[in-house]
């Protein structure tokens, strides 16, 4: 695989990366959030983004889903350049990605059933009985058969996250983006979500990108991990390799050390008055 050269990336065989990011730069005002990020994510893999809060992990997910546009560099998914898509193309593209946002983001005014049915109703013309079967099968796949008439506020954090998961995969996407899917859950719920992510990735042939702070879970779950710090990729590799890495930044993050190259102190922006921010 390492032997394959660039000419291969032109045709979409299974070896070409499904997501290809090159020299990505993203700024907000004067602040550079991401500064020259490159990565190849292969079809079928589970990849983690780790790094301190505010490092720009969510921003990377938003650049991949086309919610944000890069200032420089490129993001390609399936060989298509995201930044050159029209609104209509982008809408179409998003049907093939499932996103699990922080805290699930269930629609609070709809029942569990209607939450999961929403993307189906919006994007297909399936008759009601089929929608019902689809939603119920997804619900039981996340182990929550029988709660379809409940409202989101009647669910525990772990259940809400699983409902949101069912909603994200209901249209069988190619790519799943997870933003801190395990944050704030109890250990059992964490394991449940991890197992779901792993099994769904395999069963549906997905590619999964996961932002997480949980080093232990990351090691159990993913094939490859990027550590983002100070707007750059501070380290990358398979979990086993990262574990024994001698790179001080990687070591600091993996082992939760205060001392190291990743700064603990907040660095204020350079503009002194903040008027132009």
């Amino acid at each position: 695989m390492a032997m394959m050269n660039d000419s291969m990336t032109d045709n979409l065989d299974s070896e070409a990366p499904i997501i290809r990011i090159r020299d990505l730069v993203f700024r907000r005002g004067r602040k550079t959030i991401l500064d020259g990020i490159s990565m190849d994510i292969h079809r079928g893999s589970i990849v983690a983004f780790m790094g301190p809060s505010g490092a720009g992990k969510t921003t990377i997910l938003r650049l991949i889903s086309g919610q944000l546009r890069p200032d420089e560099g490129s993001v390609e998914v399936n060989g298509q350049l995201i930044s050159s898509m029209s609104d209509r193309e982008l809408q179409h593209f998003r049907r093939n990605i499932g996103v699990l946002l922080q805290d699930g983001a269930l629609f609070t005014d709809l029942t569990v059933f209607e939450n999961i049915a929403t993307p189906v109703r919006e994007h297909t013309d399936l008759p009601e009985p089929l929608i019902r079967r689809l939603v119920m099968s997804k619900l039981s796949a996340v182990g929550l058969g029988g709660i379809e008439e409940r409202m989101p506020h009647e669910l525990s954090g772990g259940m809400a996250r699983r409902v949101a998961f069912a909603r994200a995969v209901v249209l069988d996407p190619d790519i799943m983006l997870y933003d801190e899917p395990m944050t704030g859950l109890d250990p059992i719920a964490v394991s449940t979500i991890r197992t779901l992510m792993r099994e769904t990735n395999k069963a549906l042939g997905l590619t999964s990108l996961i932002v997480t702070h949980n080093v232990t879970q990351m090691q159990l779950l993913v094939d490859y991990c990027y550590i983002i710090a100070s707007a750059k990729v501070a380290g990358e590799g398979r979990p086993a390799d990262l574990n024994v890495s001698t790179d001080p930044g990687v070591d600091q993050f993996m082992n939760g050390k205060v001392e190291g190259p990743i700064p603990f102190h907040y660095q204020p922006p350079t503009s002194r008055w903040g008027l132009l921010d």
Binding site: Q67, H92, R95, L101, A105
Partner: peptide, 13 residues
Amino acid sequence: ATNQIEAMELMAI
């Protein structure tokens, strides 16, 4: 604030 609007945009709604 609870990301429901963003979730909709991501569902292409």
